[in-house]
Every structure is written in structure tokens, then in C-alpha cells.
Amino acid sequence: MPREKPIRFGFLLLPGFPMSCLTSAIEPLRVANEIAERKVFDWCLVSEDGGAVRSSARVGFDADHALPDTVGLDYLFVLSAPDSAFASRSASQGRLRHLARHGSVLGAISGGVFPLARAGLLNDHRVSVHWCYRAAFVAEFPAIESSDEVIVVDRARQTASGSAAAFDLMLHLIGDRLGPDVSTEVACWFQHPIIRSTGVQQRVPTLYADSTIDCVPEPVRRAIALLNDHIEDTISIAEVAERMNMSQRQLERRFKSATGQSPSVYYRTLRMKAARQLVRFSTRPITDIAVEVGCTNASQLSKNYRSVFGLSPFEDRRNNVAFRDTGPTNGQTASAFTRPAFSLRQ
């Protein structure tokens, strides 16, 4: 009897991709093969031109294939920073569309949703977007339905919010092929505490507090959700309290007890967190960003931004670009930083 054909995965790496997301996706597939004692899953690394790609941790990875030469994949997952871009945008986006038309399931992990969305391949699909990129994603792609769920599977598109979510997604794909006993054994192999499914919400930190959103009392969590829903259009704390069926004083007392901040300070900081995503992960003018986070002008944004982060939006954008372009020790540019790449293969 002929042996089953392995399921083929490709991981398309763009400069600045998060290394942990790659290893979290590949390692469970490797272990599943060991447990099954056969090659059930096969994988390769893909880059736009077939050359090495440097991760956000400044570790380089050799590619197995160039994107134009990639064929026969069952799944192709894009891994990138939010502001990563194709060198040959038209050709590379066209190749992704070609793979989708010919049966490849396309997916993205963490910031990989951005280049996939820019290629028009997430239109009319729900996608998982990491909470730290949410404001930037919504601003750039307002028509795409973004979700706070750790994993979203929507027809032939599969997205995961981060490295742990990528691990969970692979466990589900392993379970689909080899059954729940094997996926559970893989999870236990890595001491992964629980296999999260679709529908599970991301854990989001409360601002400057030793807790996450799911740890705060329900009324405070609902108030935070209301504030999150009114980043651009202002909602007063009195209106939030009214919707919560409590007095403003009662809301402020409970809110500060749970988060360490008053609702008004929390709201301003929340808006500045959203502004920082747009400052760092978009090229939008600062004046436009001010409007998108409910400020009357760039001057007000700069004042509030400095009070939270200690520098202006202009300084933060300049520093962020310099940090991405400069090596960690000697000021060389990324292209001149010569640590050799290594190959991650089977």
C-alpha cells in the first residue's frame, strides 16, 4: 500500500519576522512526525528571492526556495513585521494569489497579516490580529474584520495572533490528521498547558498593572471594552458609568482598585497606546494620527504622548526607524551586520 503523501507547509519569511513564531510553528510538526514514526508533515522556508532573511532577533535564516519557485504547498504561512514590504510587490503578491487559486491554504502569524492583507488576500475574511497591532491594522484595513481571538480559521485562510497561538494552530492541524491523542502528546512533549481552540480571546495586559484584562472584575472589563470602542470618538467617563448602571464615583473607585489608574488616565493612555501603533507601524502623518485617537490636533497628541512615553511621536518614529535599521552593538546598518545566517531544515 503506498504511503500517504506528507502535508506540505511553507513559511514565507519577510525581514524582521518574529523568530519565535517560526519555531513555534515548526517544532510541533517535527515532534508529530517523531511520534507517528513517519513523515506526515513536511516543511520549507521561503523568501521572496531565495536568499537569507534576518529575523527581528537579528538571527538570519537560509531559505529553501524563492517565492516564485514555490509550488505544491498545502499551506503557506506569512511571517513578518507589520511594516515589512515585498521588494517586488506586484510579482510577489501575484504569486500569493496564484498559490491561493491553485489550492494552497494561506495563513499569517502575528505581523504576517499585514502583507497578506496588502495583497488583497484577506478581503471578506475574519482574521486574528495581535492586540499590539490592532489599531494599526484597523486603520490600514478598515474593511477587514479583525478579531481578538488567538486563532481564526475562515475557509482557506488561517491566522494566529502570535507564537503561542501558532503552536495551538499547529496542534489543531496535527489533530485533524493524526487524531487528538497525538496532538495532546505533542502538547505534553513541550509542557504546553492547554490546547486553545478558535473562539478563545487573547490575553491583553491592563495598562501599568500586574494583571491582564481577563483578571479584572467584570464591570471594569466591560468599562475597558467601552473605552476601547471609543478611541476616535470620545466617550465621557460619566457616560461609561451610566451605561454600567453605576455612579461615576463608584466606577472610578472600582476602576482604580483593579488597574491602578483612574478611568480618565487609563483612557488617555489607551489612546496613546493606539497612537503609538500608528506612529511605529504606519507612515500616516502625525496630524492624521491625532484625529484617529481623538485628539484635536498634533500639539495635543504630542503633549499626551510625551506624558505617557517620555518623547514626542516624531521622536518615537525616528528612534523606531533607527532601531530597526541599526545593529545592536556598533551602529552598522542591517545590511552591513554580518553575522552568518544558518539553515533551519528538517
Rank of each mutant, 00 (worst) to 15 (best):
R284T: 12
Q250M: 08
V40P: 08
P219A: 15
L76P: 10
H130E: 00
F323V: 06
G199S: 07
F314D: 05
H102N: 15
L29D: 01
F77K: 00
L226T: 13
F323S: 05
E140G: 05
V105D: 07
A57T: 06
A238I: 01
H192Q: 03
R221H: 05
H172M: 14
V31N: 06
L73S: 04
E292R: 14
S110H: 02
P285I: 11
S257D: 13
A336L: 10
P340V: 06
T70V: 03
R203V: 14
D181R: 02
Q191R: 13
R317Y: 07
Q277V: 02
F337P: 11
L73H: 08
I224T: 01
K273R: 13
V31S: 03
P15V: 02
V204L: 09
R134S: 08
P2R: 03
I213A: 08
V40K: 09
F167T: 06
S55P: 01
D124S: 15
V279T: 12
F314M: 02
R339N: 12
V186I: 11
C21E: 11
G94C: 06
S24V: 07
F137Q: 01
R177Y: 07
A139E: 06
R54K: 14
S197G: 04
E27H: 11
R284E: 10
R8T: 02
I286E: 13
I213D: 09
E292H: 12
L311C: 11
V113E: 15
D148V: 01
A25Y: 00
L301R: 10
S257I: 09
L14P: 11
H102Y: 10
A322P: 05
P263L: 10
E145K: 12
V46A: 01
S197T: 14
S90F: 01
H65E: 13
M19V: 01
H230Y: 11
L73F: 13
R30A: 13
S183T: 09
I151M: 09
V150S: 01
I195S: 03
E242I: 06
F114S: 04
L173Y: 00
I35G: 10
T259D: 12
T206Q: 00
S56Q: 04
P285E: 15
S20D: 03
L301H: 10
